[in-house]
């Protein structure tokens, strides 16, 4: 729609005066809905969140409207909190662990499905299922699967004699983070497979045929043809993955609620807890701004990366 208008506008550039003003108005009217939506749905919350993080915004504020300015006190409080460094480390482990495995497994499956075989289409669409389930449903289901005594995972492993004692998946501070990352990997695989598969489909078959003549098959074909051509898609997948994963909240809340003994607290769960359990909305906002800032850094990397790809 937009490009269509542009060409007509360009074609009539010579006609000036009233008509020109009308054109400008039309343009403005076209842009307006988007601007209003952006300002109302993105601009306002971001600005409000920034302001909130500089205020003593508590339970009382909702009733009295009074929120004294406290400068950067909320930031210093949350950063010096004893859980902050744990939450930072957990956020990093959670993000890196999830992304690494999601990507590698996703790429493997995408390559596998790229070789056409009977029922590959059906299997590939079944693979999307984890993505279609509401997160709160998947986390409740996984919670019962990972239950220490009667969960199906431990029972199966015990029956197969792979473990001697039930694994305390969600009950031990040293295992819980691994279990939570595992569930998040499961949820993220479809996203990776779908995007990487479409990236693979874009690579022209001629390249492989030409490569074959030069003796590039198997791994060599992957490293010299597939990977270079897939790189731009891969960087999009990884960057979006980071931005999605770093703020994951519902899966962790559903599985462990940040426990046991705060072993699975991340910046996102901490921010939620400060705001909606402790009702210290100023501190919650400060934490979520830190989270936004980290995502923003990755977003900039992503934008620069894609711009360079376009320039090339």
């Amino acid at each position: 729609m937009v490009t269509l208008t542009r060409t007509t506008v360009a074609g009539r550039a010579k006609t000036r005066g009233r008509r020109h003003r009308g054109e400008t108005l039309t343009k403005v009217l076209f842009v307006l809905p988007a601007v209003v939506a952006m300002v109302a749905l993105f601009g306002y919350p971001v600005v409000k969140n920034l302001l909130m993080s500089l205020q003593d915004y508590g339970l009382k504020t909702f009733f009295t409207g009074v929120a004294p300015w406290v400068g950067l006190k909320n930031y210093s409080t949350v950063v010096t909190d004893k859980l902050f460094s744990d939450a930072m480390v957990n956020t990093a482990l959670f993000t890196i662990g999830s992304i690494a495995f999601q990507f590698v497994i996703g790429l493997g499956l995408a390559l596998f499905f790229h070789k056409k075989f009977p029922l590959s289409g059906l299997l590939r669409s079944l693979l999307l299922l984890p993505w279609l389930l509401p997160l709160i449903v998947s986390s409740a289901t996984w919670r019962s699967i990972l239950e220490q005594d009667s969960g199906i995972l431990n029972r199966t492993l015990l029956k197969l004699h792979l473990i001697g004692d039930p694994v305390p998946w969600l009950n031990s501070p040293s295992v819980a983070l691994i279990a939570v990352i595992g569930v998040n990997i499961w949820i993220g695989i479809p996203f990776n497979v779908t995007l990487l598969y479409s990236g693979l489909a874009e690579i022209p078959d001629e390249l492989y045929e030409a490569g074959q003549l030069d003796g590039a098959t198997g791994w060599r074909a992957f490293f010299h043809i597939t990977w270079p051509n897939l790189r731009s898609v891969a960087s999009v997948v990884l960057m979006l993955g980071v931005v999605y994963t770093i703020k994951v909240l519902d899966i962790i809340l559903g599985l462990t609620g940040g426990g046991p003994a705060n072993a699975t607290q991340t910046l996102a769960t901490q921010s939620y807890e400060k705001s909606f359990v402790d009702f210290k909305f100023g501190q919650g906002a400060a934490l979520s701004n830190i989270l936004i800032a980290i995502s923003f850094v990755f977003a900039i990397f992503y934008l620069r990366g894609t711009r360079r790809a376009v320039d090339e």
Binding site: F30, L32, P33, V36, A40
Partner: peptide, 21 residues
């Protein structure tokens, strides 16, 4: 049709604002 489209765009904005209020 362009006018109609522009009018529609304007109407969308108005209704968005109305929803907000």
């Amino acid at each position: 049709s362009k006018r109609i489209a522009a009018a529609l765009a304007g109407a969308t904005t108005v209704s968005l604002l109305l929803v907000a209020c």
